Computed example of a mutant assay.
Amino acid sequence: MKLYTLKSAFGTYINRIQSIDTSDNLPFSGGEYNDHEDFTEIINKLQFRLERDVNEKKMTSDFLYQAIDFYYGPIIIKSDQEKTLHFFSVSPKLKTLLEQLKLPKHKFYPIVLNIDNGIDLSYYILQIDDNMTSYMDYNKSTFYGLNLISDELSFYQEGEIKSEENLLGLLDDDIFPYDKSMSINQELDWVYMAPFFMISEKSKQLLEGNGIVGMEITPFYEVESDYGKPNDLGYLNKFGGREIIINGKSTMDDLDIDDFPRADKK
C-alpha cells in the first residue's frame, strides 16, 4: 500500500495565510481538533490574507501572490506573539474534492481571503483531526520510546501498549513515545504520523488529476530525514523503520526493510 506525505508547496507561491488579531487576548485556546469546539464566531471576526513579511513583500519579491488551492495556517499574529493553528486553508475546488475522500473528523470554516490588493476570494479553513487514537488498534500496533535523558531507545511490541493512556504514561519516565507500526482499524484516505499527514493513492490521483495547485506530495519512504541526519532508528529516511497499516494493508507490503538506506551502511 502506497502512502504519500502531504505538505504545502514552498518555493514559488506564498504558502501560508495569516490574520492580525487586534483583541486583548489571542482568540484561540488551541488548535487540536475537538468535536465540541467551534471557532465560527471567532473566525467571523477576523480578516485573512496571504502571509506578508515585516516589509510588506519587499523581502519575498520572488514569491507569487496568487490564488492557489492549499495553504498552511492561518497564523494569528499579535504585536508580541503569534500562534500557528493546526489547520489548512483550501479553495472551494479542493473542498469539493476532499468531500469525496474518507478523512478523519474535520470541519470547514468559510472565510474571505485577501490574495493581494483588491483580490478577495472565498476559501475554507480546514480543521482536521491529527490525533489517531480513536482510529487505532493498539493491540496490533508497536511503539518505541526515546529516553530524553540518555537518548537510549526502548521498543514495545504488539499488545504491550494498550491505550493512549499507557503510551502517554511513558512520559512520566522521561521517555518520548513514537509509533513504529501504526495500525488503523478503518479505511482512511488521510492519516497523521508526525509531522505530516499521509494521503492515499486515491487522494493523490484525485488531487493531481484535477490540477490542484499548492500541494507537495512525496512517497512516504522517500522523505529525507531532517538535516541529512538519520532518524532515531538509524535510517536516512524520515520514516525508515516505521509503517502504517490501514485495514490490514501495510506501507511495507512488497518492501524489504533491509533495502532501506541506513547511516551505518554508507
Rank of each mutant, 00 (worst) to 15 (best):
L233R: 05
T12W: 10
K229M: 14
I161A: 01
N15Y: 09
Q47A: 12
L167N: 00
D24W: 13
E222I: 06
E224V: 11
S181H: 11
M193A: 11
E99D: 15
F197D: 00
F108A: 02
L171E: 10
K162D: 08
V213L: 10
F176H: 12
I115F: 05
L94I: 03
F239E: 03
G73N: 00
L103R: 05
L46C: 01
Y4V: 03
K229W: 12
V213G: 04
V112S: 15
M59C: 11
K83N: 10
E41M: 06
N15E: 02
Q66R: 13
P177K: 05
F87E: 02
G118I: 03
F10P: 05
T142W: 05
S154L: 13
S183M: 10
V191H: 06
E201F: 10
L101S: 05
D38L: 00
L94S: 07
H106A: 05
S8H: 06
A67G: 08
I184C: 03
L6P: 01
D259P: 04
D179Q: 11
K180I: 02
Y13K: 07
E51V: 11
M1A: 12
I217H: 08
F39G: 02
D120H: 14
G211H: 07
F48M: 02
I17G: 02
I43R: 04
V90D: 07
Y192M: 03
G228W: 08
N139S: 13
E51A: 15
E165M: 12
N247D: 12
E56Q: 13
Y4Q: 01
F220P: 04
L64N: 11
Y227M: 14
D172I: 10
N25W: 10
T60G: 09
K249H: 15
L121R: 11
F28P: 01
F70E: 08
N231G: 01
Y109P: 01
N114K: 14
S91V: 01
S163A: 07
I246E: 01
G234R: 01
L3A: 06
I175Y: 03
E32C: 09
Y71I: 04
K105W: 13
G11P: 02
G11F: 07
E158K: 13
P74Y: 06
D174N: 14
A9Q: 14
L94V: 02
M132S: 08
I68V: 13
W190M: 15
G159W: 04
S29W: 12
L6K: 08
Y13F: 14
N55T: 12
D264M: 10
L170A: 01
Y109A: 00
V191P: 03
D130G: 04
K7H: 10
L233G: 00
N185T: 10
S29D: 15
N114C: 12
S225F: 05
E243A: 10
N34D: 14
S23I: 02
I125H: 02
S89A: 15
G241I: 02
D179V: 11
L236W: 09
M252N: 10
K180V: 04
L233A: 04
K265S: 14
S23V: 05
F108I: 04
L153Q: 05
F196Q: 07
